[in-house]
Design a protein around this nucleic acid. Structure first.
Lengths: 123, 123
DNA sequence: ATTAGTGTACTATTTGTATAGTACACTAAT
DNA sequence: ATTAGTGTACTATACAAATAGTACACTAAT
């Protein structure tokens, strides 16, 4: 089977990223139920303990709430979700621009590079 | 001292990234000498063995050449350097756009998001 | 020849990640 | 009450990354 994850980052973090993106895209709605620890473990082909760790992390971030015997649910607090979206966007942009600056590109070159890349993708 | 590295990625890879960027920016020139394994270890506050592993990786990629008793030198092949630059740029752009798409943004929203972010940085 | 500064190799130990297996606690449905 | 499906906890094991320490091989300068 195809490898879902990169080796350079802990799998439990990568699963957390994946779930956050699903929430942000609306695939998982506020108050909605996540796959159970065991289901998710099968879905992403990983040990249940690893998924549990992911859920624990997400719970610490107030993104999900785990209810013993019932399941794990996306927070109903839409403001939390909105702020997660902004945080992720900012984080991704910051990381991207930082790396491009470190390569020596200027602001304009970065913008141009992105535009070229996106146009090329559409061909 | 400030932590130079992220915990989520092997340090030896992060050092390799750092060095590649120095080469690309021209801080380390073709044929130039890198800091010795021991010097670099002190510079980045890490064990010499970790730096050695970085140098070994870079040598495998034909980016540097290690000479016993003399030191480790940037390749003199400027084409290799040029291609590393393009690879890194593409890699960074690909990673960035992939993540933004996964968050649900469109091409135009990505461009706009970048422009806004860069403008905001200048304030 | 000696010395200092290189890269290189090796063993041992620690830490974090991930897996494997088992067991328990709670909830909802029957 | 029983059962199935939840989250949770625990021990044991394996592996990679990183550290620590030591030693060796080679080069250039003295």
């Amino acid at each position: 089977m195809a490898e879902l994850f990169h080796s350079s980052k802990p799998i439990y973090e990568q699963i957390a990223e994946m779930i956050k993106k699903r929430i942000i895209r609306g695939e998982l709605t506020a108050g909605g139920k996540l796959p159970s620890v065991r289901e998710m473990a099968i879905e992403v082909n990983v040990n249940p303990n690893t998924v549990q760790r992911t859920y624990r992390e997400l719970e610490t971030m107030d993104i999900v709430e785990s209810k013993r015997g019932q399941g794990t649910f996306v927070t109903e607090d839409t403001e939390v979700i909105a702020s997660i979206r902004e945080e992720m966007k900012k984080e991704i942009l910051m990381n991207f621009t930082k790396q491009m600056f470190e390569m020596g590109y200027t602001k304009e070159e970065i913008k141009q590079g992105l535009t070229e890349y996106l146009n090329r993708k559409g061909e």
